[in-house]
């Protein structure tokens, strides 16, 4: 996969030419098998119905700001986890097990979209989708859910999938698997020969000119 599309103002291109996957020959077999599989054809969907899939795609595009291809195939990765019941091993009292909560929350998203815009969530305009989600993040109660609890479920699954992908590692400069080679250069501003320095170290996300927030357009 080539680099994920991300504008420089949004943090794209800070590590030019950096590729964790280019180091795959240095990884142990077990690790390479797991990581390289993520670069191949994603698994077919088994868990989500087509209607749920459409809502989930739109939701994940929003949560991870994936507006165009190439994308990390989040929907396939989450679907595989749910099909295999690979949960985090806990759920909030009063909330259903993860798989059922996913189904119920995706259909609740469609309900919101229908009642506000007369179409399903995936057909709503990008900014209107963002507005629907912003409401949920701040809601004490959203349909049958606590806003915070459903938000936690969505972002946990989405981020676990996205930041397990080598293309996402390249974007953030993370060096990926390190066995059996290990790291030799510890300490501030030290890099391994294959690591790439950040070309925009001033791009602190908390400084006003780079203030974060999904609502802002780049």
């Amino acid at each position: 996969m080539t680099a994920l599309p991300l504008q420089p103002a949004s943090g794209g291109g800070r590590f030019p030419g950096f590729s964790t996957a280019s180091q795959a020959r240095h990884w142990d077999e077990a690790t390479a098998a797991v990581v390289i599989a993520r670069l191949g054809l994603p698994q077919d969907l088994r868990y989500f119905t087509p209607v749920e899939e459409a809502a989930a795609r739109a939701l994940f595009d929003q949560l991870l700001d994936q507006r165009e291809d190439p994308r990390v195939p989040i929907v396939n990765m989450v679907d595989a986890r749910l099909a295999e019941d690979q949960t985090d091993g806990w759920h909030y009292d009063g909330m259903k097990p993860d798989g059922e909560s996913w189904r119920a929350s995706l259909s609740a998203l469609d309900e919101d979209a229908f009642s506000r815009h007369g179409v399903s969530f995936c057909q709503v305009h990008w900014d209107a989708q963002t507005a629907i989600l912003t409401n949920i993040q701040d809601a004490a109660q959203w349909h049958e859910f606590s806003g915070a609890h459903i938000w936690s479920l969505w972002t946990r699954y989405a981020c676990t999938a996205f930041y397990s992908h080598p293309a996402a590692w390249d974007e953030i400069g993370f060096a990926g698997p390190a066995y059996p080679r290990g790291y030799k250069n510890l300490g501030l501003d030290s890099r391994e020969p294959f690591e790439v320095a950040d070309v925009r170290p001033q791009q602190d996300p908390l400084r006003p000119q780079f203030a974060p927030g999904a609502e802002e357009e780049d």
Partner: peptide, 19 residues
């Protein structure tokens, strides 16, 4: 995400990980 970031804000924040 615990700071409330998602979408573009999340990606931008994450790109700063090395610091």
């Amino acid at each position: 995400t615990a700071q409330g970031h998602w979408g573009a804000g999340l990606r931008k924040y994450m790109s700063d990980y090395v610091h």
